[in-house]
Amino acid sequence: MSDQEAKPSTEDLGDKKEGEYIKLKVIGQDSSEIHFKVKMTTHLKKLKESYCQRQGVPMNSLRFLFEGQRIADNHTPKELGMEEEDVIEVYQEQTGGHSTV
């Protein structure tokens, strides 16, 4: 019986991991920090939209990076291997420009 009891508790931990929340720091170019608590399985588009709304800027005017890689709207913290207190960097999107060649 103890084996049966242990097995469901392991499964519960697996389920808990799926719905687990982590805190992420979003740091802007001006070094301002906003902290977000997100589920591991939530699409990061929600975090990006919330950040842009707080900053009063359109979402397409900023780019969000985690460990140097651009974050897509459909990425989740779990897919990117994010952990508690990880940092997302935000930069002004640069458009235009010309070749110097």
Rank of each mutant, 00 (worst) to 15 (best):
P77D: 03
S61Y: 14
I27A: 01
D30V: 03
R63Q: 05
G97Q: 00
P77N: 02
S9T: 12
G97T: 05
E83T: 15
V90C: 12
K7H: 13
H43Q: 11
Q94E: 07
K39R: 11
G56M: 11
I22C: 15
K23H: 10
A72F: 09
D30T: 08
T41G: 08
T42I: 05
F64A: 05
G97F: 07
L44E: 02
G96C: 05
H35A: 07
A6F: 12
N74P: 05
E11C: 08
L65T: 13
G14C: 10
S50G: 06
G81P: 02
T41V: 00
R54L: 09
G19Q: 10
I71C: 00
F66L: 03
T10M: 11
R70A: 09
Y51E: 03
I71L: 02
P58E: 09
S32T: 08
D86G: 12
D3M: 06
G28L: 00
I34F: 15
T76Y: 01
E11D: 10
F66E: 04
M40G: 09
Y91H: 11
G19M: 15
K46N: 09
K46Q: 10
N60Y: 06
G81D: 06
E5Y: 13
V57L: 11
E49V: 08
E83L: 14
L62I: 15
Q69L: 08
V38L: 12
G96M: 06
D12K: 10
S32R: 12
D73L: 02
E85S: 11
L44W: 02
K45N: 08
I88Q: 04
M59F: 14
G97N: 00
D12T: 03
E89N: 10
M82W: 03
E85M: 15
E84N: 06
Y51I: 06
E11V: 11
H43R: 15
K45W: 06
K46I: 12
E93F: 15
E5C: 00
I71G: 04
E49K: 08
T42G: 06
L44C: 05
F36V: 04
V87Q: 13
Y51L: 01
H75C: 11
E33Y: 10
K48T: 00
F36N: 02
L24F: 04
D30N: 13
E79N: 06
Y21V: 08
G28E: 05
F64G: 02
Y91D: 06
I88A: 03
N74D: 13
L80S: 02
Y51R: 05
T95I: 13
T42D: 06
Q53Y: 15
E84K: 12
V26M: 02
L65D: 01
D15P: 11
Q69W: 07
G81W: 07
G81Y: 00
L47W: 02
G68K: 01
Q4S: 14
L13I: 10
I88G: 04
M40H: 15
M59W: 05
E85N: 15
R70P: 11
G19C: 10
L47M: 08
Y91S: 04
G14V: 13
L13N: 10
K46F: 08
T41Y: 00
E33Q: 08
K78Q: 08
E93A: 08
Q53F: 15
S61G: 06
L62Q: 15
G96N: 03
A72N: 15
L47D: 05
P8W: 07
K7C: 07
V87R: 13
K7Q: 10
E49C: 00
E5N: 09
V57S: 05
H35K: 11
E33P: 05
K78F: 15
G19H: 10
V57D: 03
D3T: 15
F64I: 00
D86Y: 07
G97A: 04
E89L: 12
A6D: 13
M82V: 02
T76K: 01
D86N: 13
K39Q: 09
S31H: 00
D73V: 02
D15T: 05
E84T: 10
E89H: 04
E11K: 11
H35R: 12
Q94L: 13
L47A: 01
H43L: 12
A72R: 12
I27R: 04
E20P: 15
M59P: 11
S61T: 08
Q29V: 02
F36I: 04
Q4E: 06
S61I: 05
K7Y: 09
D15C: 10
F36Q: 04
R63Y: 09
P8A: 11
I22Y: 00
H43N: 09
E84A: 09
I22Q: 04
K39W: 09
T41W: 03
G56Y: 04
A72I: 15
M40W: 00
V26S: 15
E11Q: 08
V87L: 14
Y91T: 05
K16Q: 09
T95G: 09
G81H: 15
L65I: 10
E11L: 14
E5K: 15
K46G: 02
K7L: 08
D12H: 11
A72S: 14
E79T: 03
K17I: 08
E83K: 14
D12Y: 10
I22E: 00
K39G: 15
E93Q: 11
Q29W: 14
K78L: 05
F66M: 04
E20Y: 14
K78D: 14
V57K: 10
V87E: 11
K17G: 08
N74R: 14
E84C: 15
D86W: 01
G96V: 00
Q94A: 13
K17M: 09
P77R: 06
G68R: 04
E79A: 07
M82F: 02
G19T: 15
K17H: 10
R54M: 06
K78I: 14
H43C: 15
Q69V: 05
P77C: 13
E79C: 04
E83P: 00
R54S: 05
L47C: 01
G97D: 03
G81L: 12
S9W: 08
E84V: 09
